[in-house]
Amino acid sequence: MTDKLKVATTSLAGCFGCHMSLLDIDERMLELAQHIEFDRSPITDIEHCGPCDIGLIEGGVCNSENVHVLREFRKNCKVLVAVGACAINGGLPAMRNHIPLEDCLNEAYIDGLGVENAQIPSDPELPLLLDNVHPIHEIVKVDYYMPGCPPSGDVFWSFLTAIIAGQEPSLPYELVHFD
């Protein structure tokens, strides 16, 4: 057990599409399970990240909690990977960056069609939104990037098997996509 690589995963301002894509490696997951075990991840429900070999980050950074989670991953993971378009450039959530935050909140919670009991959520438990959505490399050092929206199952497979084999990960032309 102990020689397995520890992998942690999380979705920040993402849609979990990249996590679904990881599952797209299908039956290769069984082979992968012989070499890795998951630490903090939606797959395990472990809440905090222990020391890990690989951290896979889906999604950009849109609120204060995202910043804390991202820093926790960076502190604990030897290799940190930006997974998918949102982690790499903010992605679709970052398309709100040219709209003032107040206008976004008003549109969603006050003026939007069909809104009842209009009020902007202000429970202290809710993480505060940042004025802009940021790619993760603007907050922590990132070691590798897996482009794609989402990166295909083959991208995950190619990357993880390279790391397991102790090789430098690289992607053939067919696997490099920004869409």
Binding site: I88, H98, P147
Partner: peptide, 12 residues
């Protein structure tokens, strides 16, 4: 073989 944008974004 560009995988990332390297620089901080302008979000112009």
């Amino acid at each position: 073989d560009m995988h990332d944008n390297h620089f901080p974004h302008f979000f112009a």
